[in-house]
Amino acid sequence: MSERTILLTGVNGQVGFELARTLQGLGRVVAVDRSRLDLGDLDQVRRVVREVKPALIVNPAAYTAVDKAESDVEAAMRANGEAPGVLAEEAKRLGAALVHYSTDYVFDGTKESAYVEDDAVNPQNIYGKSKLAGEQAIAASGCDHLIFRTSWVYGARGKNFLLTMLRLGAERDELSVVADQIGAPTWSVTIAALTANVLAQAVAGDDGWWAQKSGVYHLTAGGSTSWHGFAQAIFALSASEKKPEVKPIPASAYPTPAKRPANSRMSNRKLLDTFGLQAPDWQEALRLSLADR
């Protein structure tokens, strides 16, 4: 039997970097960065998939500059909306499956409780609209797929809230952080580990596994907090001796080009019921991530 080939995009990103490690053992991983596969170049996307001929495509690559997307609409929609559709079309043509990552920003944040997968989507910014377009293009293709919606992603690489707080905390005695937006800070390692666990089940499953499991799943850390609470926890758990004072402010005091949802909480119940997997609480994951530093 020939070895299963897995095409992994965005290998230098927060989640892609971790996936390159957790996917080991599930097949031959062909990991590509933006220089090899740029989601902004749809012809290149199609060409690379046809060259690699994967049995599985895992796509954590994305246009992630949320505020910049408000003025860079075409690029955001191409990378997050059109490119996933191309990957899905090519997967369908090959008889391959696609794993893709989406966001809490597909919701408007007005629900009082945690969002479930079937709740109405209503993105409030271009980034959210582009990610929703990607979800819809994948579903329309008819390919076997898993779409994991996650939130507030952080890790040891790239640009994220954790690294920003650690940098600013070393420079300043006082920080003002938004306290009226709620979500689940989710470690990139958690996302990669749970993805690999799901795909291990796919490898061990029967021929009907993908047909039964295809769809959208929420995948975030357990529990929830505000950005202010997240910042407080970062400094409480950090080994740094310098601990800045973290003051709560409303989102209205920190205007950004892109509107953020007030409630980004998403229920992981479907993930647990379908795959038997449960993400760690956000505080435990944060403790582990800081222990790695």
Rank of each mutant, 00 (worst) to 15 (best):
T9W: 07
L23Q: 02
L8K: 01
L19A: 06
S2N: 14
R47P: 10
V52I: 12
P54G: 05
E18A: 14
L7K: 05
V29N: 01
L37I: 04
T5Y: 00
R21C: 07
L7D: 09
V15P: 01
L39M: 06
P54F: 01
G16E: 12
R34Q: 14
D43C: 10
L8R: 07
G40M: 02
D33T: 07
P54H: 01
K53T: 14
D41R: 13
G16M: 11
Q14I: 15
S35I: 00
G10L: 05
L37S: 10
T9N: 03
R47M: 06
V32S: 04
Q24I: 10
G27Q: 08
E18L: 12
L19Q: 02
N12S: 13
V30W: 03
R4H: 12
L8H: 00
I57A: 10
T5P: 00
I57D: 09
A55V: 03
L26E: 03
A20R: 02
D33G: 15
L7Q: 11
L42V: 12
T5K: 14
R50C: 09
R34C: 01
E18G: 06
A31P: 02
G27D: 10
L23S: 05
I6S: 03
I6W: 00
Q44T: 12
R47F: 08
V48C: 04
K53Q: 15
I57M: 09
K53E: 15
L19W: 02
L42F: 09
Q24D: 13
K53F: 04
S2C: 02
G27F: 05
D38M: 11
K53H: 06
Q44D: 06
E51L: 15
Q24T: 10
R36A: 15
V29Q: 06
V45L: 09
R28A: 13
G10Y: 05
T22K: 14
L37C: 05
Q14K: 12
V29W: 03
P54W: 07
L26D: 03
T9M: 04
Q24G: 14
T5E: 01
L7P: 00
A31T: 10
E51W: 14
N12C: 11
M1Y: 14
A55D: 15
A20K: 05
V52H: 07
R21M: 07
R28I: 02
L26F: 04
V49M: 09
T5I: 15
P54N: 00
M1N: 11
R46W: 06
G10T: 10
R50I: 07
V30P: 08
L37A: 04
A55I: 03
T5N: 01
D33K: 03
D38E: 13
R28N: 12
